[in-house]
């Protein structure tokens, strides 16, 4: 144990212990995903064995059952339309709002938007449901897109405030001295500069709209049902086995995981800006 007497040796041992602990944390965090993928690739006999089957020939039958047998592509299309439209509209309304908050220092407004995060979504859902039913808007894209704005709009505003604040004001002043209007400067100078922020904000907004369960559970119907609700319904009707449930879970999560990896570097900033900056 002589190396423990040297400082470098102690540091190396320390590092080794800490890295092992970190690996353990990662194993725990990732195990459910690994298990989900394994389950989705096993057949029913393997999945109902009392001792977990770790080695097996993977089958794609579960995926085939979910996609072909359950109209999965249709629900995916619904989710896609709703999340994309809610994100697009969120940008349209959110970008100018975030810019104004950052430039004109509208602290009160920023705080108010943050407060809307405290309110449980379900509190809005009951009134929405009554209003949309009387307008005969239940089971329409319109109702779902509008309600999903409650997720995408604040998300985009919080993320973008930080990005707009980082743009040096000199740049805008220079453009305005050259005769550009303030709004023109916003559109032609500022927006291109915050594109990385726009991508991050859009992807985060898209993910959280895609993940939304509660609104679609009540406001969607056979024509507009989104993937999370569709999958929840499969299991309540008991029509899907272990492998099928896992395959469905993989299929819902896959797009979200891919998107989050694209903006991985910025996503931490995006996720924490709502929490820490408040």
């Amino acid at each position: 144990m002589t190396f423990l007497r040297t400082r470098a040796g102690r540091d190396r041992l320390n590092n080794w212990v800490l890295n092992t602990l970190l690996l353990l944390v990662l194993v725990v965090l990732l195990f459910p995903f690994v298990w989900m993928i394994l389950t989705s690739l096993r057949d029913q006999v393997q999945n109902t064995s009392a001792i977990p089957v770790w080695w097996f020939w993977p089958t794609l039958q579960n995926y085939r059952d979910v996609i072909v047998g359950n109209n999965f592509l249709f629900f995916t299309f619904n989710s896609l339309v709703i999340a994309a439209a809610a994100t697009g509209l969120g940008l349209l309304f959110g970008l100018p709002a975030a810019y104004a908050i950052a430039r004109f220092k509208l602290r009160g407004l920023a705080a108010w938007i943050l407060v809307s995060r405290i309110i449980p979504y379900i509190t809005f859902l009951l009134p929405w449901f009554l209003v949309f039913s009387s307008l005969r808007l239940i089971d329409t894209y319109l109702a779902l897109i509008v309600t999903h704005l409650i997720i995408t709009l604040p998300m985009i505003i919080w993320v973008m405030i930080a990005f707009f604040e980082d743009i040096p004001i000199d740049l805008e002043e220079a453009a305005m001295v050259d005769g550009m209007t303030r709004f023109g400067t916003f559109l032609r100078i500022v927006i291109p500069l915050v594109m990385p922020g726009v991508v991050t904000a859009s992807i985060l907004a898209f993910i959280y709209s895609w993940n939304q369960f509660l609104f679609s559970l009540i406001l969607a119907g056979p024509n507009t049902k989104t993937v999370p609700v569709a999958v929840f319904n499969f299991i309540s009707y008991g029509s899907i086995n272990f492998g099928g449930i896992a395959a469905a879970a993989v299929l819902i999560t896959l797009p979200v995981v891919i998107l989050s990896l694209i903006v991985q570097r910025h996503i931490v900033r995006g996720l924490t800006s709502g929490g820490v900056k408040g």
Binding site: F33, I235, I245, T253
Partner: peptide, 21 residues
């Protein structure tokens, strides 16, 4: 850092299903 993000970014319904299993 990318891997650590996965639990909070994944669809809650999918997470719930896998934990139910």
């Amino acid at each position: 850092r990318a891997l650590i993000l996965l639990p909070m970014i994944s669809t809650p319904v999918a997470i719930a299903l896998i934990w139910a299993l």
